[in-house]
Design a protein around this nucleic acid. Structure first.
Length: 421
RNA sequence: GUGGUAGUAGCUCAGUUGGUGAGAGCGUCUGGUUGUGGCCCAGAAGGUCGCGGGUUCGAUCCCCGUCUUCCACCCCA
């Protein structure tokens, strides 16, 4: 009992914190539901093997792993996608694709902490499984943006940067690059603007990337529009066709005002195969709020059917900070509709019966757990932001009449027990 | 991981160049009003001054270590 603080990187949610979390979850749930996504969930504890196979060796160092009493190697999930993949594969014969699935789950990652990064967070995932059209990308991004709009954010605060892994592969296709070299190229693009050109050059040389490829990469980095990219690409470029299609669909979804083509978006995870995207906060130094993309090979690489997928992940920590910066967090608690107090023990039963009646009507109602003086009671009613307060004393007990006080207007209404809501 | 910053009441922070009993505002509680909240007034509770060690007659203050926070870089996405 020495250290009462939560473990490093873990959070307590006091009621005022929980309220904010609920507010964000509600926005996520709202968006997922009005776009027709279905919610799913899986255990927080997964087998280490599943997480390793998907993530690769480096990330497994950041996974909280342990052995259970039967020596099974288990781990806390660091993201939701492996569990999703497992569930899809297990039922791939019986599911009718495409699926639109959503989830909100707590994920853990042992990593160094900075602003907006803890060792535990709640992640909102939207995935469309089994659809190769870029309608899937559009749909996922549109739903994500709807959740942000629900919290009061707009294109003034958020920009979605759109890139494409496939486009990069095509641009570099004239060279015969190994997987490792391609990954190094992605990393270099990712560093654009963050690190000096010399640094990028050095990194690439270390990976044995030929001089000519590096030169091409630097030309690629400077591409700032789709039209510009077009001149570098073959006539029948698939990536270009996809991107054009995607931007066309985005027009009719009404989300183009958020979008910006950005060739440097590659995403860190290895399994992306097509369009990739990152939602960034315009004000807060372009911090990444959400990200995702197309991963067409993941399920088959885990032994499942060939199923094209688009996924999006969105953490609660950054959005909380962003909303706080923009002063868009909800303030007061919602407030209960009715609160009932009583003067002495004899009045308790009457108060409890009134509360039971009000609750049967579906209205929220809190009844005192012990007798309270009127002053105490009304003060508490005020603090709880109650809409109506009912105080039962000997007078009410005798007459059977109940005074309902509207706390905002400070007006009384007298009703009989039968007239209660 | 490296460098810096900070840690004093529930919260935000003063303060002591080392000296009897450690301060404010906000919040909480009580009373002013044994049947009415917000405002006001009065009062109270609440602190091992992050933790451990050292120096000293004496440490919240100085020194060392450690943990935690925040920031930057590194790493990662």
């Amino acid at each position: 009992m020495e250290n009462f603080a939560p473990p490093r990187g873990m959070r307590d949610f006091y009621p005022e914190d929980y309220r904010i979390r609920e507010y964000i979850f509600n926005a996520w749930e709202y968006a997922a539901k009005i776009y027709g996504f279905e919610f799913w969930d899986a255990p927080v504890v997964e087998s280490m093997e599943l997480l390793e196979r998907k993530a690769g060796e480096e990330i497994s160092e950041q996974i909280y792993s342990f052995e259970d009493k039967s020596k099974r190697r288990l781990a806390l999930r660091a993201e939701l996608t492996p569990s999703l993949a497992r569930m899809i594969i297990n039922r791939q014969g019986g599911l009718s694709f495409p699926l639109k699935w959503a989830s909100i789950g707590q994920c853990f990652r042992y990593e160094r902490m900075t602003r907006g990064r803890k060792r535990e967070h709640y992640q909102f995932n939207l995935d469309i499984i089994g659809e190769e059209s870029t309608t899937a990308e559009t749909e996922v991004i549109a739903a994500t943006l709807t959740s942000l709009e629900k919290t009061g954010l707009s294109e003034k605060e958020i920009r979605v940067h759109i890139g494409s892994r496939k486009l990069l592969v095509e641009l570099l296709s004239e060279f015969k690059l190994s997987e490792a070299q391609l990954t190094a190229c992605y990393m270099a693009l990712d560093k654009k603007g963050k690190v000096s050109d010399e640094e990028i050059n050095k990194i690439l040389k270390n990976e044995n990337i030929p001089e000519e490829v590096i030169n091409k990469l630097f030309r690629v980095i400077s591409i700032s529009s789709l039209e510009e990219a077009e001149s570098y690409l073959p006539e029948n470029s698939e990536a270009l066709k996809e991107l054009k299609e995607f931007f066309k669909f985005s027009e009719s979804y009404g989300i183009s005002k958020y979008l910006k083509f950005d060739i440097s978006i590659v995403r860190g995870l290895g399994y992306y195969t097509g369009i990739v995207f990152e939602g960034k906060a315009v004000k807060s130094n372009l911090r990444t709020v959400f990200g995702g993309g197309r991963y067409n090979n993941l399920l088959s690489s885990l032994g499942g059917r060939e199923l094209p997928c688009v996924g999006m992940g969105f953490g609660d920590v950054v959005i909380m900070e962003l909303l706080s910066d923009c002063r868009k967090l909800p303030g007061q608690r919602h407030g209960i509709e009715y609160i009932i107090g009583y003067m002495n023990a004899d009045c308790a039963e009457f108060a409890q019966k009134a509360a039971a009646k009000i609750r049967k009507s579906g209205k929220s109602c809190s009844v005192g757990l012990k007798p309270e003086k009127p002053k105490q009671f009304f003060k508490k009613a005020d603090r709880n932001n109650a809409h109506n307060a009912i105080y039962i004393g000997p007078d009410e007990l005798e007459s059977g009449k109940i005074t309902i006080k509207n706390m905002k207007k400070s007006e009384d209404t007298i009703k009989s027990f039968a007239e209660l809501p």
